[in-house]
Design a protein around this nucleic acid. Structure first.
Lengths: 117, 117
DNA sequence: TTGACGACTCTAGAATTCTCGAAATATAGA
DNA sequence: TCTATATTTCGAGAATTCTAGAGTCGTCAA
């Protein structure tokens, strides 16, 4: 991922409402959630939510598909991975040992103590 | 890390100039760089840079110490790790396999193909 | 075709962020 | 003390972002 894309992704996530939406979609998994369901879960107005979904979508962090009258949004895990990889380059550039604890953490099964999952 | 702190960190990094400064400091390592050196490297005006260093500092992403007339800034690796951990919780929540490629990537030595370092 | 519904777009005002010139503060050396 | 250097703080204008009301578009069912 190039720097301008990373900036766009970071800006998209640097907003409480959008972060909440993204986390919700991550938890929803590949099935995703309809815009209306997201609005209901978060209490956001539909037009405000639509704007924020558009920002996440333009950043590539969510994908959407139409299902009848609803539009279903899903988290774009691949894009998020790219963003994390970009940030890790910064975090441990020239200092691989710096990121080692993170790698260990994310390698653990979800049930383990200190797991990130 | 709590959500509001993560938002603050993301906002701090979601800016081309501040991202450049942060990457510079990561590469500089624990010795850090004086504000003036950063200004020279990035071409930023001293007052603008000072504002941006203040934003990074308030987010906890850089630390500073005075050395004579200079103020030396260093990247706060621990804080960056916390931020990455926070984002990983989102990325692989309930889906540990999603983050596995990242873990593999960051586990590799810096010289390896596809290494993050 | 009509009505209802779900979602998006348009628009404008409020709020925040960004940048930079000017001034202030802190330190070192003569 | 006086001067020079390094950095921060102050203040204002420009630009961007945020939010929400109103209206529009697309889809479904009768």
């Amino acid at each position: 991922m190039e720097t301008p894309d990373a900036i766009t992704c970071l800006s998209a996530l640097a907003h409480e409402g959008r972060m909440e939406v993204f986390r919700l979609l991550v938890r929803a998994g590949p099935e995703g959630l309809a815009a209306g369901e997201i609005a209901q879960s978060t209490g956001a107005l539909s037009n405000t939510l639509s704007t924020n979904l558009g920002i996440l979508s333009r950043a590539g962090l969510v994908a959407s598909r139409r299902d009848g009258r609803s539009i279903i949004y899903t988290a774009a895990f691949g894009r998020m991975r790219e963003l994390l990889a970009f940030l890790m380059e910064d975090c441990c550039a020239g200092k691989p040992e710096v990121c080692a604890p993170l790698a260990a953490m994310v390698s653990q099964p979800c049930s383990a103590e200190g797991s990130a999952c």
